[in-house]
Design a protein around this nucleic acid. Structure first.
Length: 832
RNA sequence: GCCGCUGUGGCGGAAUAGGCAGACGCAAUGGACUUAAAAUCCAUCGAGGGCAACCUCAUACCGGUUCGAGUCCGGUCAGCGGCACCA
């Protein structure tokens, strides 16, 4: 063993040995309990950043800890390697996306290997390779057959920056989440996954995800946006049959007698029909154009003044037969509910504002207790509970009860009924981009959209394509790609040139890892059954909605297809915080990026990992500190030096039996062993129960400090020292695996630390205390401390406390009201 | 607007079931070793008062419950995150 810790040599040597021994290769073994530890696979941008280092360090602690605790661990890594940056790089640098991506993967794989994470590299996947995306296409086809994929013309989010449509989830503040360009609405034919079929399921099973942070579940809950209400079919005056049907959705069916007007969304298909050939035609069209001319931001802003225009038509209220004027308004969304709302100014603030502006009548039909609303004097809508009035047979009912009765009445009369509505929209998956999984569909003049037969998969992306700066997908200009024949009738046909949203690729990769090399199926059912579910999934909270909900949807759909055994992919979820520098996220533009590569070069991977795990608990944001890294480095050196000094002092130490000697132990021996076993307990629980790696590491630091003290003690015992150093190395190994293996070998052991059993602690040693220090309080304030025998009775404790000089003085002539004693901890004397 | 989270030394953070506030680390200061430096080791390190033993105050703020509150309850303020003209 060298005197100084030379991390460079140590880390390189052990990484090589691990690889040669195939130490981290996972093999199915039904006789052993498995543990599937997964970190979100990265996009291969070219360089690892500190967020990655944090993510994978956290995962590696768990994977190593579980392995040492006897689990058969699966810990894979791969690449989410389709996506726009590859195309942008191709346009900018004239490098084909495939080469750019594969070069980046090679580079990042090297960086990742220098971190010494316990990955089974045999299971590596890259979603951009045909061996992988073939199965993404296959799954698409299974879902297509099941009716979970469909195409429709819809007003979709179009990003002019990326030249593609976006999913709802990818629009943030009416801008593209990727490039920040303001999103436009365009009516286009697009492919959708029918995630709304699973809205209730996705919502209900959130409750079963007990290992997920509440925060994430609440965000998904909000996103799904379930609301209960009623559908009410108004009738268009002067129309017959289905043409007269004007359904609205409302959460307040109890206010239906307060309807004084109706509003349609600007894009509502009814608008054109009712104005055609009337005097309203021109002004209404002008209004609609004005609304459509606004950007998404303007249109959806709550600041936008509510405006509308009368269409000349009327709708009949099915509850009372009243006529209500039909308007078009800028505050009604086509995509939510039915795209039409009933206007109840007295009990909805938006309607109130609208009615005031256009002089529409206001009719109060819910009266709050002890008050009487008067339409003339109201200054805002009353949205609370109350008693129904002017509501025909329903007058006098409490409005909560009224909601149910009105819904029941609508149901009975065939003009509506109770219904549930969701904000969740179907998942738009087609992208007008090149670097993605081709959608396996062929368009035939005769047969329409025909799925590509499974035997013809994969539909390969052509690699010899040319990129134009317009950003237009080269697939549209590649006849050798799109020219094909119809699988059904054999006539010439055209391939779909849209590709899939990359979130489709990442919605099932965790299944592929269970059988990554399978070329006959996406995965073997038995293997997936053995490894699934993912026991712990670790990644950034920014995926709380998008990726995590899509993956849940896939799992449920695949389960309904008979392809999986469970309906949820991730048993436990750990959302890690960001890595900050100077209080903000590291970014090139701010110039505050710390490169993992440089840190590893300067201090080694163990130091980088240790610092990042020590600086904050995983869920919290972490402030990068160069001085803190130095501290972590010093600590590893301190461990090294301590063990080196012991081995120098007594080279035979490596042959000593570990543990306490026979016979009575010195006070120092006992203290050392209690500290050791207490540390084992704390570190074990911190990792296993709480994921508090920072406190686990601080406990190991305290143990090291204790070791330094003990090794200077004249009565030190080499068996105890051996026990301490062995356990210290094992406890440290999930955090700093290279130095741990080196020290393990140096202290005379064979085999990898990874294969050792996690140290156990002995409760008897922890309990073997003959004297404890107790706090003595007066009225809850600490006044003194005392040492008492551990086995002391309550009475004797109180006697001892009262006998203390300070306490005697303080009690003086006062009256003791009572004494509260917590055995082994404190005595509180209550005086008055 | 709705929903949620977080406020503790100079800094990162600890206090795991209501029981010693500030573990561990960083920074800082003083000292030892050294010709010197680095490394290492020792000591001090929330604020105020006192020669001292010690005392008072202190976990964003105000109040409550309790023998005892960083922790529980009610309110206020600040910061962060999600959703948002969702009928």
């Amino acid at each position: 063993m060298r005197e100084r810790y030379q991390f460079g040599d140590v880390e390189a040597r052990w990484q090589e040995r691990w690889e040669q021994a195939r130490l981290y290769q996972a093999v199915e073994d039904p006789g052993r309990e498995k543990f599937y530890c997964l970190e979100m696979f990265p996009y291969p941008s070219g360089n690892l950043h500190m967020g990655h280092v944090r993510n994978y360090s956290i995962g590696d602690v768990i994977a190593r800890f579980k392995s040492m605790n006897g689990y058969n661990v699966l810990h894979p890594m791969g690449w989410d390697s389709f996506g726009l940056p590859a195309e942008n790089a191709a346009i900018k640098n004239k490098i084909p996306p495939a080469r750019w991506t594969l070069d980046n993967i090679a580079q990042m794989r090297g960086q990742l290997k220098s971190m010494g994470i316990s990955y089974d590299w045999d299971r590596e996947v890259a979603s951009c390779l045909p061996e992988y995306y073939r199965w993404t296409q296959w799954l698409f086809l299974q879902m297509y057959k099941k009716g979970l994929v469909y195409k429709k013309k819809a007003a979709v989010n179009w990003c002019p920056g990326c030249n593609t449509v976006l999913a709802n989830e990818q629009v943030v503040d009416a801008a593209c989440e990727r490039c920040g360009t303001a999103v436009q609405k365009k009516a286009l034919e697009q492919w959708f996954f029918k995630i709304t079929d699973y809205a209730q399921d996705l919502l209900d099973s959130l409750e079963t995800l007990t290992g997920w942070p509440d925060k994430v579940k609440i965000m998904q809950d909000n996103w799904i946006g379930r609301s209960e209400g009623a559908r009410i079919h108004f009738a268009l005056e002067g129309a017959e049959g289905p043409a007269a049907d004007l359904p609205v959705y409302t959460t307040r069916p109890d206010t239906v007698f307060g309807v004084t007007y109706m509003v349609l969304a600007a894009e509502h298909p009814l608008v054109e029909r009712i104005i055609a050939g009337t005097e309203y035609e021109e002004p209404v069209r002008a209004f609609v154009r004005k609304v459509q001319g606004m950007t998404e931001v303007e249109r959806t802003s709550t600041e936008l003044e509510k405006e509308g225009i009368f269409t000349g038509a009327y709708a009949v209220n099915p509850m009372n037969g009243e006529k209500a004027p039909l308007w078009v308004g800028n505050y009604v969304l086509l995509e939510y509910g039915t795209g039409a709302v009933m206007g109840v100014p007295a009990h909805d603030q938006r309607d109130f504002v609208f009615a005031k502006k256009y002089g529409l009548p206001i009719r109060a039909v819910i009266q709050p207790e002890g008050e009487t609303l008067d339409a003339e004097t109201m200054t805002e809508a009353y949205t609370g509970d109350g008693v129904m009035t002017r509501s025909g047979a329903f007058s006098g009912l409490g409005n909560r009860e009224g909601m149910k009765r009105v819904a029941a009445h609508l149901e009975a009369s065939g003009s509506g009924g109770a219904t549930v509505n969701y904000r969740l929209r179907d998942w738009l998956i087609s992208r007008q981009r090149y670097w993605g999984t081709p959608i396996p569909i062929v368009y035939c003049e005769e047969c329409g959209a025909v799925p590509v037969p499974e035997a013809d998969l994969p539909v390969r992306l052509p690699l010899d394509v040319e990129f134009l700066p317009t950003g237009e997908s080269p697939l549209n200009r590649s006849p050798e790609f799109y020219e094909t024949v119809c699988p059904k009738c054999g006539k010439p046909a055209r391939r779909e040139t849209d590709t899939m949203d990359t979130f489709a690729c990442s919605s099932w990769y965790f299944l592929r890892y269970t059988d990554a090399k399978n070329d006959r199926a996406p995965y073997d059912a038995a293997k997936a059954r053995y490894w699934m579910n993912v026991d712990l999934y670790i990644g950034g909270v920014e995926h709380a909605i998008l990726h995590l909900m899509y993956a849940r949807f896939f799992m449920k759909a695949l389960n309904d297809l008979g392809l999986t055994d469970t309906r949820e992919p991730f048993q436990n979820l750990l959302t890690q915080g960001m890595v900050l520098k100077d209080g903000t996220k590291m970014s090139k533009s701010k110039g505050n990026v710390v490169s993992p590569e440089e840190i590893i070069k300067k201090y080694g991977a163990d130091t980088a990992r240790l610092f990042i795990l020590f600086a904050a608990p995983p869920e919290r944001d972490l402030e990068w500190s160069d001085a803190g890294v130095e501290g972590a480095y010093r600590f590893l050196n301190r461990v090294w030096r301590g063990i080196y000094q012991l081995l120098t002092e007594n080279p035979d130490m490596t042959k000593m039996p570990s543990g306490a000697p026979e016979g009575p132990l010195s006070k120092e021996d006992q203290q050392m062993r209690r500290l050791l076993h207490g540390t084992v307990q704390k570190v074990t629980e911190d990792i296993q129960v709480r994921f508090n790696f920072n406190t686990a590491i601080s406990a190991i630091m305290e143990l090291t400090n204790g070791l330094y003290l003990y090794k200077e003690s004249p009565s030190k015992h080499w068996g105890v020292l051996r026990e301490v150093t062995d356990h210290l190395v094992l406890l440290l190994s999930p955090f700093a695996p290279h130095i741990a293996d080196e020290l393990w070998e140096a202290t005379g052991h064979e085999g990898f630390v990874y294969r050792q059993a996690w140290p156990a602690y002995d409760r008897r040693i922890l309990a073997d205390v003959d004297e404890v220090e107790m706090v003595v309080q007066l009225n809850g304030k600490v006044r003194d401390r005392m040492k008492v025998p551990a086995a002391i009775s309550r009475e004797d404790t109180e006697k001892a406390a009262l006998a203390l000089e300070k306490i005697r003085d303080a009690v003086g002539g006062g009256t003791i009201v009572k004494i509260v004693t917590v055995p082994g901890k404190l005595v509180n004397i209550v005086l008055r």
